[in-house]
Design a binder for these strands. Structure first.
Length: 515
DNA sequence: AAAAAAC
């Protein structure tokens, strides 16, 4: 175990690090920091969650504190693939540079937010730029930026940039910065195209490979649910049953499509869960705000596209749900890697339908072992059909003349909440939606309230806001589920019954098979 | 197949 104090960092930085509560460096930090401090290039092969950000931020601050600032010329440049990641780097730069006697200035250059603030900072001159490629080059083309003073270039998540088609931009940035500079280059994997890039632009780099947090971290208990149908409504039902049965602290629900992210988030809210969507079609303010809310624990369920699959550092995610099997097996690893972090244990669930046949093979092959199969009892998933209403909203048409919904609404089957955390069993089959009759005397049905959406733009202020400090958000809805009486719950709206969807497990006394 | 990123 290497202590930060052994790495050759200044007292100011060490103090800032210890203020965050860290004393022991991760392997990538222990290896990369001493090398980076000497000014040599680093090729770091490391996944997110290995402490990569500090591994380049700390030596960067150290080296910048020794040099002297030149006006209007950034001395360091950090490139990240997504806006959220860039923001994260910015936050960690701010934290770790807080104690510098000579203050370091920085600017976050990302798309989706106004140019003017960024330009103002650029005009004033900053030491460090933290950017996504598009906006950086945009500023450059507008003549707002001179990159000839860059002494340190950090490329984060290079393989992801490759996936996203950023490599030409990265090459251009390499060429716009002086050849004689230090490059800290990080990638989780080394596909040929990335290797080529490093050979071309890195100068005798020290290669540092952090032990892969194995494709399947031991801290993550992986599960999957096989459904006989690919019907979205059946999937949403299964998702809710899983969430209920798990008694989650918080969780991320990954979908493959942005439209599906919206639908699932909305559906969860309709069913009284505290959920919000994040994906690339939402405006940046909403994305940031939603992420902040999730980080702070204000938001329980984050429905996400793969914008959130990699790199996001949220220390305490208890669950990851793969509503869809990801297109790329790699993405599965990244997605579930949002939980089980920092030594905490996490649980991952994946819904697998006939439509996922191809993708699931690749995923199972990659993780090398079969996740524990979970059986959701008591619901005839094959009989569930989505309502045309959702199809219209999603813009993905269905054949006309489809069977009309019974009851019309996507109503909750309302499985009871399991109070005690589920214990591990050796069974391959776990009943995830147990009858809770005996276990729980108290819980009344959830209360779908009138405010159906927590989208900040539309939020109507409730009469008695529970959280006056966050006026833009409607009160949380997943917690007080049991407060409302049956009458409240009706709230003047027609009560939509279970119809044929009453899950049998609600009427069963216990689940004998469970241990 | 999809997602991400510049206006």
């Amino acid at each position: 175990m290497t202590e930060f104090a052994e790495l050759g960092l200044s007292p100011e930085i060490l103090q800032a690090v210890s203020a965050t509560g860290y004393t022991t460096a991760t392997p990538i930090q222990a290896q990369a920091i001493p090398v980076a401090l000497t000014g040599k290039d680093v090729l770091g092969i490391a996944q997110t969650g290995t402490g990569k950000t500090a591994a380049f931020t700390l030596p960067m601050i150290e080296r910048l504190s020794q040099g002297r600032s030149r006006a209007r010329m950034p001395r360091a440049l950090v490139i990240a693939p997504t806006r959220e990641l860039a923001d994260q780097v910015s936050a960690s730069f701010e934290r770790y540079s807080a104690n510098q006697t000579r203050k370091l200035s920085w600017a976050l250059l990302i798309g989706g937010v106004s140019f003017s603030d960024q330009e103002l900072k650029l005009d004033r001159g900053v030491d460090v730029l933290i950017a996504t490629p598009g906006r950086l080059l945009d500023h450059f083309e507008r003549g707002k930026l001179l990159l000839t003073g860059v002494q340190i270039l950090v490329v984060d998540e290079a393989d992801r940039m490759l996936d996203m088609g950023f490599i030409p931009d990265i090459e251009r940035i390499f060429r716009l910065t002086p050849p004689k500079k230090q490059t800290l280059f990080f990638s989780a994997t080394m596909p040929p195209e990335i290797t080529r890039l490093t050979k071309q632009f890195l100068n005798d780099p020290v290669r540092i490979e952090a032990a892969r947090p194995a494709t399947t971290a031991e801290t993550i208990a992986q599960h999957m649910v096989r459904l006989p149908t690919s019907d979205p409504k059946a999937k949403r039902t299964a998702l809710r049953m899983l969430i209920e049965a798990e008694g989650i602290k918080n969780g991320i629900v990954f979908c493959n499509r942005k439209s599906e992210v919206d639908i699932v988030a909305k559906s969860l809210r309709t069913h009284g869960f505290d959920a919000a969507a994040i994906h690339g079609d939402l405006d940046q303010q909403t994305r940031m705000r939603t992420l902040d809310a999730f980080r702070s624990g204000d938001l329980k369920l984050l429905c996400a596209s793969d914008v959130a699959a990699r790199g996001l550092d949220i220390p305490d995610v208890s669950h990851v749900f793969n509503y869809d099997v990801p297109h790329h097996a790699d993405d599965y690893v990244h997605r579930i890697g949002r939980t089980g972090r920092a030594g905490k244990s996490g649980r991952a669930f994946m819904i697998v339908t006939p439509a996922d046949a191809k993708n699931i093979d690749k995923v199972l092959k990659l993780i090398g072992k079969d996740p524990e199969e979970v059986v959701l009892e008591g619901v005839d998933f094959a009989a569930i059909k989505d309502t045309p209403r959702d199809d219209r909203r999603s813009g993905r048409g269905r054949p006309t003349g489809r069977e009309r919904s019974r009851g019309g609404e996507d109503r909750p089957p309302r499985p009871r909440r399991e109070r005690e955390p589920r214990t591990e069993t050796e069974d391959t089959h776990v009943v995830a939606a147990p009858a809770a009759e005996a276990a729980e005397p108290e819980p009344a049905p959830r209360a779908p309230r009138r405010e159906r959406t927590r989208h900040p733009d539309r939020s109507e202020r409730p009469e008695a806001p529970e959280r006056p400090e966050r006026p833009e958000r409607t009160p949380r809805r997943s917690e007080p589920r049991s407060e409302a009486s049956e009458d409240d719950r009706r709230g003047g709206k027609p009560v939509v019954g279970f119809g044929s969807e009453l899950p049998a497990f609600l009427s069963r006394p216990t689940t004998p098979g469970r241990k």
